[in-house]
Design a protein around this nucleic acid. Structure first.
Length: 519
RNA sequence: GCCCCCGUCGUCUAGCGGCCCAGGACGCCGCCCUCUCAAGGCGGUAACGUGGGUUCAAAUCCCAUCGGGGGUACCA
């Protein structure tokens, strides 16, 4: 173990699609290790496949990382001493490396078409042989792809931080294509080259890349031998490597994140974009906390951890090797706890995007509701902000996700209709009409404070000879339109008196109709 | 098919030969509190995939088997 080597880790996604829980975990663990060791976190974009890489995807990833608060020391956007950090901008280097490998006799042409190769591989399988492409089995050619000639026999091993020692037999390893027939380099070459050129000390990535490790190890040796990479760097005018850097000294292959059915993550169970989770009202702190716990746990068993606490406690040797299912229920519960711990003023600000139309709430189909009308204006007026701040303590206790505020807030900001089911359920109870009438009278002259409102309303139970529930529910439905709301006295107190009285009056005919309907 | 990885409550996990007839968290169930819904408090349910070894002793080590996953691309 090269204990003294500065830790340099990297997150190297291909920019297709968006960041989801699985990819964020890879980013997070790299980030955590860098921060824990006071090392360097590099963000490189692997866009060597022009057909798949998109600018939108990259922008979306940047947005997600920023929202999560995962900052990078070197990489796209921020730059750094060993850039550029988009592989498409490093193509000269990759080509120079390929040419030098070819000159040194490590590469050979393979001009078989994909169809021919498939047939050939199938034949190998039928013969019960490894379907691997090897030098010597292909015809002499001077066109087509360039493959790397791997050793034909013997074994390779890596020490993996999460899996221990893993060994492969070279006889089972296929010679990888390093340069496509169109001249573009592939992942194995670009990735190995850049990891070396940027001094990556530990490769931490998904388990799906475990099987690609042997050829990378082999490539590291070739690129470092005789200063091949150094010369190529010099040739294309890119920054020289630090002389103390060797090849990555270890690997950490993180298990897959799976769905609750143990199958590959799909949208149904959490493979939603980070932006989608933001829209649903999860806090970035909760996401980071929960995702960190996916395969890792601190020695002392704590589960509620702030960012700094995770950084302090994180270590690779506590990372588990088995696949983990992302549990949205647990995320939700943690999110609720965090909301309850928040400072009300800070929470009010976080709620605004869920009320002003920035984040659309779910429609009936679970998708964002395009017809939703914002509850607050953009930007919110001072009056709206004051009312929202007053509302926060009431909703803070009962929210799991920020988006839920949209369920409670409307009656505090605008007229809302009375929910029919709520009316039918509540107004059919004996005494409802009387409760509304007496409530209006009692509230008309009272001080508009929580205490006075409570005293006035509680006094009604004796006057009407019914339990308080029978008083409170009709009034709740009349004023909020729903039989579910924050506590009644507090709710009324932050509304204007005339609004409350108007709504009580407006609900009376509805209540009478329900009662009369019952005969 | 071949190669590699993985296997503790429904889920995330603790556990690295005796402290474990397995602990915590989420979920679920019940009770308490209560103006609704929540929140909160208390209690409960529930797991070492299977079969062989090794050992005085195994969730922990070994082997087999079954199951799951990844790879087997001119994607990354």
């Amino acid at each position: 173990m090269a204990a003294d080597r500065e830790v340099r880790v990297r997150f190297a996604p291909a920019p297709s699609g968006w960041l989801h829980v699985g990819s964020v975990r890879t980013a997070l663990f790299n980030w955590l290790w860098a921060r824990h060791t006071r090392g360097t976190f590099i963000w490189r974009i692997e866009d060597t496949d022009a057909d798949r890489a998109t600018e939108d995807s990259m922008q979306s990833m940047i947005e997600a990382m920023r929202w999560l608060g995962l900052d990078w020391d070197e990489g796209i956007e921020v730059g750094g001493p060993y850039g550029p950090y988009r592989q498409s901008e490093r193509a000269d280097l990759h080509r120079a490396v390929a040419r030098r490998l070819q000159d040194a006799g490590h590469l050979y042409h393979d001009d078989r078409s994909p169809d021919e190769l498939n047939t050939w591989r199938q034949q190998r399988r039928d013969d019960d042989l490894p379907p691997t492409v090897k030098r010597g089995t292909v015809p002499d050619a001077d066109t087509g792809t360039l493959r790397l000639a791997l050793p034909a026999s013997g074994t390779v091993s890596v020490h993996d931080e999460v899996r221990g020692e893993v060994t492969w037999d070279w006889a089972n390893e296929s010679d990888p294509v390093l340069v496509r027939s169109n001249g573009a380099v592939t992942y194995p070459l670009a990735n190995a080259t850049d990891d070396l050129a940027q001094g990556v000390s530990l490769v931490c990535r998904g388990e799906d890349l475990l099987s690609v490790t042997p050829r990378q190890l082999f490539l590291y040796d070739l690129l470092l031998a005789d200063g091949l990479l150094d010369d190529a760097l010099d040739e294309v005018g890119l920054p020289a490597r630090d002389p103390s850097w060797g090849a990555p000294s270890s690997f950490a292959h993180l298990s897959m994140v799976v769905g609750e059915d143990r199958k590959k993550l799909s949208k149904r169970h959490g493979s939603v974009s980070i932006q989608e989770l933001a829209r649903q009202g999860f806090l970035p702190e909760t996401l980071l906390n929960t995702i960190a716990l996916l395969g890792w746990s601190p020695r002392d068993g704590r589960e509620r951890l702030d960012r700094d606490e995770v950084v302090a406690a994180f270590s690779l040797d506590q990372v588990g090797a088995s696949a983990a299912a992302f549990d949205v229920d647990k995320l939700t519960a943690f999110n609720g706890e965090r909301i309850r711990d928040m400072d009300p003023a800070a929470l009010a600000h976080r709620l605004v995007p869920h009320l002003d139309g920035t984040y659309l709430p779910d429609g009936d189909d679970g998708e964002p509701d395009p017809d939703h009308e914002p509850i607050l204006s953009t930007p919110p007026s001072d009056g709206e902000l004051v009312r929202l701040t007053a509302l926060v303590p009431l909703v803070q206790e009962r929210m799991q996700v920020l988006a839920e505020v949209a369920d409670y807030a409307p009656p505090f900001f605008r007229e809302v209709g009375i929910d029919e089911a709520a009316a039918a359920k509540v107004f059919r109870k004996a005494g409802s009409v009387e409760a509304l009438e007496a409530g209006a009278t009692a509230l008309a002259g009272v001080d508009w404070t929580v205490e006075a409102i409570e005293a006035a309303l509680r006094g009604l139970t004796d006057e009407l000879g019914i339990g308080f529930g029978k008083v409170a529910q009709p009034i709740r439905v009349a004023v909020t339109g729903s039989n579910v709301s924050p506590p009644l006295f507090e709710s009324l107190a932050i509304m204007d008196r005339h609004v409350v009285l108007d709504r009580l009056a407006a609900a009376l005919p509805v209540a009478r109709a329900v009662r009369d309907d019952l005969g």
